[in-house]
Amino acid sequence: MHPAFSVIFLTTLIGTGQGLFLALYTGQVYAFFHLLSEQASKGFYLGGSLIALSLLIAGLIASFFHLGHPERAWRSAAKWRTSWLSREVLALPAFMGMVLLYGAAHWLDWNQPLVTIGTLTLSATMVFGALGTVLCFVLFVCTAMIYACLKFLQEWHSPLTVINYLLLGSASGFTLATAYSVYAAPELMGFYGKWAIIITLLAMVTRVASLMRNCKLKPKSTLQSAIGVRHNKIVQQAQGFMGGSFNTREFFHGKSKILLRSVKWVFLITVFVLPLLLLAGGLSTSVTVLLSAAFLVQYAGLLAERWFFFAQANHPQNLYYQAIS
């Protein structure tokens, strides 16, 4: 497939925003169960929520560049019963609204206990956070299923696609939370940093697993099944035009195998290896700038990861476009 930068920015930006929200709420849940002695300030939550919301808005804006008719985008909420894209279109603003509500509730100090169970006090911010978490996971699943549901794009048609969107988004969000806490809540830096390392390691395992799976894929469609001729040697002589078409522009990345392989190694290093080293370095020394660097490197790496995700997918329609003439 031809990687579209609008979609690369959409999926990476909202993934980071979602991960950051999960990080904020994880901190609150730890405090709720008295597992974390430090409770962050309301400013920390409001600021974090606004950063997450900004990332989600930036992703939404990027997505409009993918549309031929952005002014009709409202129509895309119609077919949520059958289309994962339509479901994402509903889940994204719902989640954005809940992130805003979550940040606002913290700012307005809606921490009065609604229900008290023993020593645990459930407040409005906890409820909004829980609802936001549900919507966050729904959004991860919708975004990933847009790709994973296309069964003949075999590289995408796997549960690993969903797991990777979830873990890669969360990893970048927790790394951002680590960098953010340096300035807003230094006492939480270690907490977020350790989670960022754990999730980045998990994401590395599942992303490498999907790379290994894709290496072994055997295309179900062949030129024989595409044109229905049983012969081992079929060569295309003409594809019906000589100047290219939508078929040749949309479904081919047009880059060399060497470049593709290089991008793979670049993202494996910049999404996983370097951020892990920078996070570990930043946490063990007190050179906190390393933590900010970890996020920037990881986000840049995710752009490469997402580019590779699209470029690696081999569409069966390409069988019909092997030779110009």
Partner: peptide, 26 residues
């Protein structure tokens, strides 16, 4: 009149039977 030009349907066609009109964007 309803198409937003997102190209998702063309991804979902294994035959490459759909083409976007580069000027009308549908």
């Amino acid at each position: 009149d309803k198409c937003i030009g997102c190209k998702y349907c063309s991804w979902a066609c294994p035959y490459g039977a759909r083409e976007i009109d580069e000027h009308q964007k549908v």
